[in-house]
Structures are given as structure tokens and as C-alpha cells.
Amino acid sequence: MDISRYMAVPLGLIMAPFLLGVINRTKAFFAGRDGSPLLQAYFDIWKLLKKDAVYSRTTTWIFRMAPVIGLAAVIIAMTLVPVAGSSLFTFRGDLIFFAYCFGLMRFFTVVAALDTGSSFEGMGASREVHFSTLAEPALLLGLIALSKLAGSFSLSGMFGGLSGSDWMGAGPAIALVAIAIFIVFLAENSRIPVDDPNTHLELTMIHEVMILDYSGPDLGIVLYAASLKLWVLGALIVNIFVCAAGLTGAVGLAVFAGGMFLLAVIVGIVESMMARLSLLKVPQFLIGAGSMAVLALILVLRFVK
């Protein structure tokens, strides 16, 4: 138990940028390219941290503080997320604190985007709040379904309470929750089909356009925080499977790491196979995730006593 508990945060802090590399490598494979090195994100962050910075004259301290606040919020959220059934800290209701940490991060990212006074960044900010407004209820509804199933409303209690027999009794419900959280995961991390991280046109971006004016160390912090967010939200999905298999301790940790790797590959495959949705279709996609979470909840409430 203890190994996975104390390793949860260091593992995430170290491994998170690796996921970006895996995703890009998978996409390159499907496109028939060699692709960038797996550790490319580490190189990027390291190089950015060494660079000088350029700031827009329009910006204020909000713009400079936002990346730091976002990073702090996501690290605090990370201490609450279990890895293989146990997290560094846990208390009843921590899933609310967890969700609201991302709210804080989003608030400052959006406000910082508006701080530049650029119309493109305003556009990105507007889309970001639009989509995450719809993603948040889906995430919480999915988590309620899990907590009802496991009979606990702390993140580690909820995942720790899952077992193989739950899959037998309420398999479809758990699968639905996993799909719903996966959609939220894609939306919150600005991946295809909601947003394209590789797009080259300001008009079509969401997350990338919000951070358009960052440079140097600040951009490095933003990149690192984004990769941590990918890791933390991905951990929720992987945990559903790892915890239900009853794996804990060192084995659980290893399986968990493997699961994260697999998740990144899946994201890469999704990005290679799907086109981006039109912006008008994204709300439907997210509401669809919410509907699946509702369906899962109904199944849990009605048929699992």
C-alpha cells in the first residue's frame, strides 16, 4: 500500500511530460513518420526555462502569475488522486476540492488570456469556458456514480472500494463512467476531437491560442502544468481499471504506469483516426458524455443496491 501512496506524486511529476511524447510518437507512427523523441516534452520545457521572456505591454501581473497559480492548483489536485488505490492525502469530499482546483486553474488561464487584449486569445478563452462548463457536470456525475457504487465519497475510497465483483454486477455502468470521464479528459486537455493541439491557425485553436503570448519560462510552466493535468485526469480513468482488478502496492504501481502508457497510446490512436469536431458539435459531444454519466447513475441507483 505504502509504496504506491508515497510514489503517487513523484511518479506523476516526473512521468507526466512523457505522456505527451507517447501520444506524439503514436500519431507519428500512424502518419508513417518517425516522430519526435519520446522525451521531447522534457527538452522543450528545459529549453524554455532557460530562455529570456517577452511580454506584451498590455499585460499586467495577472498574466505573469496565472501559470504559477495553475501549476500550484494542479499539483495540489495531484496529491489527492490515488494511484493503485491509495493517494498521498485523502478526506471525505476531496473530489470536490479536486474538481475545484481545476476551476481555479481555468479561471486564471482564461483571465490571463483576456489580459493580453488580443481578439484571438479572447476567442480561445470564450471557447474554453464554454466547453468546460459542460464538461464539469459530466465529470461530477460520473464520479457520483462511482462513489455510490463504492459507498465512499473520497477519491481514494471510491477507487479503492471498487472490486472485480463490481465489474460483474455493474459492468456497463462502470464502462459508461469510464467513457464519460474519457470524453471529459479529452475536452479538458484540449485533445482531438475537441481541440487540435497541433493546429496552425489562431482562429481554430482553443487552449493553444489562450497561451499564444507566453514565452520563455512562463511558457515552460504552462506546458508542464498542462502535461500534469493530462496525467491527473488520465489517472482517474486508469484507476477505474487498475483498482477494480484489485492491484495494489508495487505491482499496482507498475500496472498503473503501464495503464497510463496505454491510455496515451489510445489518445494517439483517437487523434490519428478522428477528425476534429466542428465547434458547434462539441457541446453535443460533451452533453453526450453527461448523458452517459446520467445513464450510469441510473443503472447504479436502480439495480445495484
Binding site: 482564461v110 479572447g122 469556458v129 464539469e136 457536470p137 461530477l140
Partner: peptide, 27 residues
């Protein structure tokens, strides 16, 4: 209650980033 509080929270963030961002930030 949980679902509506989550939705309200998301919309409130949209609303106050708008109010603060447009009134105090930019040009």
C-alpha cells in the same frame, strides 16, 4: 444538487472571467 452546483460553478466562472477580464484587463 451536485449536478446543478457543478453547472452553476462552471457558468459562474464564465461570467466572472468575462466581467473581470473585460472591465479591468486588455486595453
Amino acid at each position: 444538487t451536485v449536478a446543478s452546483l457543478a453547472l452553476i460553478g462552471g457558468l459562474a466562472i464564465a461570467c466572472f472571467t468575462k466581467a473581470f477580464g473585460i472591465i479591468f484587463l486588455g486595453e
